[in-house]
Amino acid sequence: MNTVKWLMPMMIIGLFGCATIPQAPDFPKIWKPMNELADKPVAIALTKQHTFRVTQLDNTVKELLMRWAEEAKMPIVYDHTHDFTLFKPVLNIQSHDLNIALKQLSDLYVNEDIAFYIENNVIVASKIENQRFNQLNYQESQ
């Protein structure tokens, strides 16, 4: 019986405690209502454009080209007797267009007698033959 005497008042106090209404938060002045529509439509890209660039995992030109080929879903032909280490200027290569990225890479490695280009939907790395390389540069400049 003694427990019932104490239990009843505690339940009543508990119920009154739950009945209190908390104060609404004071919103800052920068608060804007949801779904406020703009005056003009804005295009939102549904797919992210891929960027061809060098990552920390790339150590050599061949590794870089193999990764780019995989990302572009293209085969690669590495027709040169040497592979080359990457050096700091390649970090500046960042393009959404693989042709441009390969051209920039070719410009950096021109002293090593190697050129990079796409031919028949295949990424090619080959020893520079003056006639072939000049022909490629001529086609790109037009």
Results as ranks from 00 to 15, higher is better:
Ala24Phe: 06
Gln135Thr: 05
Gln142Pro: 05
Arg67Leu: 09
Pro41Ile: 09
Ile93Trp: 07
Phe16Ala: 14
Gln139Trp: 01
Pro89Gly: 01
Tyr109Phe: 01
Met1Glu: 09
Ala101Val: 04
Asp97Met: 15
Pro41Thr: 08
Arg132Asp: 03
Ile128Phe: 10
Ala125Val: 12
Thr51Val: 14
Phe84His: 05
Tyr117Val: 06
Gln142Trp: 05
Gln56Thr: 15
Ile30Gln: 10
Glu63Arg: 11
Ala72Tyr: 15
Gln94Leu: 06
Gln135Phe: 00
Glu36Ser: 06
Glu140Ala: 10
Met1Ile: 07
Ile13Leu: 07
Ser141Arg: 05
Phe87Pro: 03
Asn59Cys: 11
Asn137Cys: 04
Pro89Glu: 00
Cys18Trp: 00
Val124Gly: 15
Trp6Glu: 01
Ile21Glu: 04
Lys88Leu: 10
Thr20Gln: 03
Thr20Cys: 01
Gln49Trp: 13
Met74Asn: 11
Gly14Ile: 05
Ile21His: 06
Asn2Gln: 08
Leu86Thr: 15
Ile44Cys: 01
Leu57Ala: 14
Leu86Gln: 12
Gln23Pro: 02
Met1Asn: 13
Glu129Gln: 11
Asp107Cys: 02
Phe27Ser: 04
Thr85Asn: 12
Ile44Tyr: 04
Ser141Ile: 03
Pro75Asn: 06
Asn59Leu: 11
Asn130Gly: 09
Lys29Val: 02
Glu129Pro: 10
Asp113Trp: 09
Met1Lys: 12
Pro25Trp: 09
Asp107Thr: 02
Thr51Lys: 14
Thr55Leu: 13
Phe87Glu: 13
Arg67Glu: 12
Ile44Ala: 04
Lys62Asp: 11
Asp79Ile: 10
Gln139His: 02
Ala69His: 14
Glu36Lys: 06
Phe87Met: 11
Ser95Glu: 13
Gln142Asn: 10
Asp83Val: 15
Phe116Tyr: 11
His80Arg: 14
Val4Trp: 08
Phe16Cys: 12
Pro9Ser: 15
Gln104Leu: 01
Leu37Pro: 01
Asn134Leu: 08
Lys62Pro: 03
Met11Leu: 09
Asp79Asn: 14
His82Leu: 09
Lys32Ile: 02
Gln94Ala: 08
Gly17Asn: 03
Met11Gly: 06
Thr51Met: 13
Val42Ser: 12
Met8Ile: 11
Leu108Trp: 00
Val61Pro: 01
Ile21Gln: 03
Ile123Gly: 05
Asn130Glu: 02
Gln94Met: 08
Ala45Leu: 06
Tyr78Phe: 12
Ala38Met: 00
Lys48Gln: 05
Asp58Gly: 11
Glu70Lys: 15
Tyr138Ala: 14
Asn2Gly: 14
Asn35Phe: 14
Val4Tyr: 08
Glu140Arg: 12
Met74Gly: 10
Val4Lys: 07
Ala38Leu: 01
Ile13Val: 09
Ala69Asn: 15
